[in-house]
């Protein structure tokens, strides 16, 4: 992942660095391949492995190595096939502990080549430490996604307009509510902007934000001003020329860090049940506005919730659509 997809914000725990997650994923990949290699050796050449790590070449130790190898293969395949690797990495940690116990047992055996067993034990201990660190990180990542802050969404769309046109539209922050469904308004004064969003049951959430990066025709980053919201949030949008003269790729990254409690819940609601779908909808409306001039309405889409596709007589809804 490119470095500049990192969300730009110094507010310590409000920000989620994707890069870290990516490095965690790479580590899982490395551990998975390591598991597979070791597992194959143990299952198919237990005698050679026994010799290498200084174990007596007996039927018992070969069988033990084969079993350990099978476990190693399982965790290797698990690591490589699972998008959420935390469970499998913790499985490896448990396996490492077992290996250490077995090696300790071997050290006490009279027929063992002690320096080799000790070296193998040291190697396993090292791997175990790596596993434990990786598992802890993987757990943090997945819990971040499922339970607490920060929430992080990355979505992209291609628009048939030049980067300069798209940048100019976005840079005028007051345009954002035209396509971001839950924003009511953005007012700009003296470099700061005041964002008002619709909450559930007619409530409003308001905060201030400032632009922290402004690269004309390329990128804009903003973050909430500390102290103006209980929900630190920010975003980066990048405008990249689409290959083949197809306009502009818009890459939008949003992060917010809801605290527990009612305000956090209300804020989470702003992004809908499924934040990434909400953001995808916002980008689709942005494309409509930039390409066709306005958000496109159907007879059903102008109402909240499911409605038959037929005209309405409700003036408020009609005027709301025409706005």
């Amino acid at each position: 992942m490119e470095q500049n997809t990192l969300l730009y914000d110094k507010q310590a725990n409000a920000i989620h660095r994707i890069g870290q997650k990516e490095r965690g994923r790479n580590r899982s990949l490395g551990l998975g391949l390591f598991s597979l290699g070791l597992g194959f050796a143990q299952v198919f050449a237990p005698a050679a492995v026994a010799k290498l790590i200084g174990l007596p070449n007996r039927r018992g130790s070969r069988l033990a190595l084969r079993l350990i190898g099978a476990r190693e293969l399982a965790s290797g395949f698990g690591l490589l096939s699972q998008p959420r690797a935390a469970g499998w990495v913790w499985g490896r940690v448990a396996g490492d502990a077992l290996d250490l116990v077995l090696l300790a047992d071997a050290l006490s055996s009279r027929r063992a080549v002690r320096p080799r067993v000790a070296a193998a034990a040291a190697a396993v201990a090292g791997v175990a430490a790596l596993d434990a660190a990786s598992a802890a990180r993987a757990s943090r990542d997945s819990s971040a996604r499922h339970w607490t802050a920060p929430i992080h969404v990355l979505k992209s769309i291609t628009v048939n307009r030049t980067p300069a046109e798209v940048y100019a539209f976005w840079r005028d922050l007051q345009n954002l509510p035209t396509f971001m469904r839950h924003l009511e308004s953005v007012r700009v004064d003296n470099g700061r902007s005041t964002w008002t969003a619709k909450g559930p049951a007619g409530t409003r959430v308001e905060w201030q934000a400032e632009i922290v990066r402004d690269s004309p025709n390329e990128a804009i980053a903003w973050k909430s001003v500390p102290g103006t919201t209980a929900v630190p949030n920010g975003g980066v949008v990048r405008f990249v020329p689409a290959p083949g003269d197809r306009g502009t790729e818009i890459h939008l990254e949003l992060a917010y860090s809801p605290p527990g409690g009612a305000i956090g819940a209300a804020f989470a609601k702003l992004f809908g049940e499924e934040p990434s779908q909400q953001v995808a909808g916002d980008l689709r409306r942005l494309k409509q506005v930039l390409e066709t001039g306005e958000v496109v309405h159907s007879d059903a889409s102008i109402h909240p919730g499911p409605h038959p596709a037929r005209p309405t007589a409700d003036r408020a809804i009609i005027m709301g659509a025409r706005k």
Partner: peptide
């Protein structure tokens, strides 16, 4: 206005389906 429409593929218009 979209690329699909400009290519004559109007039943693939990228903007006309709000759902």
């Amino acid at each position: 206005n979209c690329k699909a429409c400009q290519a004559g593929l109007t039943s693939l218009c990228e903007n006309s389906n709000p759902n």
